[in-house]
Amino acid sequence: MRQEPVPTPLIHPARSRLSSPLGGLRRMASSGRLTEAAMIAPFLTFFLLFTILPVAAAIVLSLTDFDMIRMPRFIGFENYVRLFIEDDVYLIAVKNTLVFAMITGPLSYFACLVFAWLINELRPGIRSVMTLLFYAPSIAGNVFFIWIFIFSGDANGLVNSTLLRLGILQDAVKWLTDPRYSLAIIILVQLWLSLGVGFLSFIAGLQSIDPSLYEAGAIDGIRNRFQEFVKLTLPSMGPMLMFGAVMQIAVSFGVSNVCSALAGFPSTDYAAHTIVLHMQDYGTLRFEMGYASAIATLLFLTMLLLKRGISKILSRYAA
């Protein structure tokens, strides 16, 4: 009988330990990768659960009929067809949101830029006071609702009483519930609220520009501050301009709270109805989640496309 040869290990014991899964972990630990993974895991978990999952779920559920109780039922693009063909209120909301975004978006953006620039011209002490005054509306909680009393529809409202006393108005105007005025007032209030994070980013960007750039510019024949702003300041703020644009798109398309607080929900003739409010209507009141998801998906898509467009324009002007 032949003796069974003692099987020689193909791999050296020490090396085999290294290539086993546990060895991999150990190697990661020694290089700190395991700790790194543990440090990023909490953020990653919550980011996936509460940011990525909702967006992904909205896209998938937009193709279904889903009422939160029964299982979602696949219906293809029926929700989208319904949005554009049957839902007149949605089309009003789209129109309002676009009007709103096209006016407040660029206006707020330029307001942020121009006021950051002007504030930067001031002496440091006065600069901080002005920064606070301009930034305060966007941080002061829900204080915007005080505009309800300023534009109150009775003769006691600040605007009405002032205009009545000056003889400009004969009767009190229902600023917030009259569909002719409500969207304009909301735009005004949104402009008041608009100097937010993007504004701070611009101020910071302006302050970190090297002063020697301006000295060189003056030698090269920059004559006034507008020339200086266009030729020197803007090009060196490229990345900030993009950040400000992203923040502005986020605010302009997310508008909902201000509308419902000022003009009521639903507003008269849907004059202040926006896409987000329409989504909230179907989501939280009617529980038609598939339909609400379709609204969300279209909104995501619009915002992404707009960001791309703006990014292209900005990269051409400020590189």
Partner: peptide, 22 residues
Amino acid sequence: TIVAMLLFSYEVTAIPLYIVLS
């Protein structure tokens, strides 16, 4: 991915988030 998500404010994702939270 995170930079892309800066675009979606909390108002915009509120309803999908509601589905996940519930």
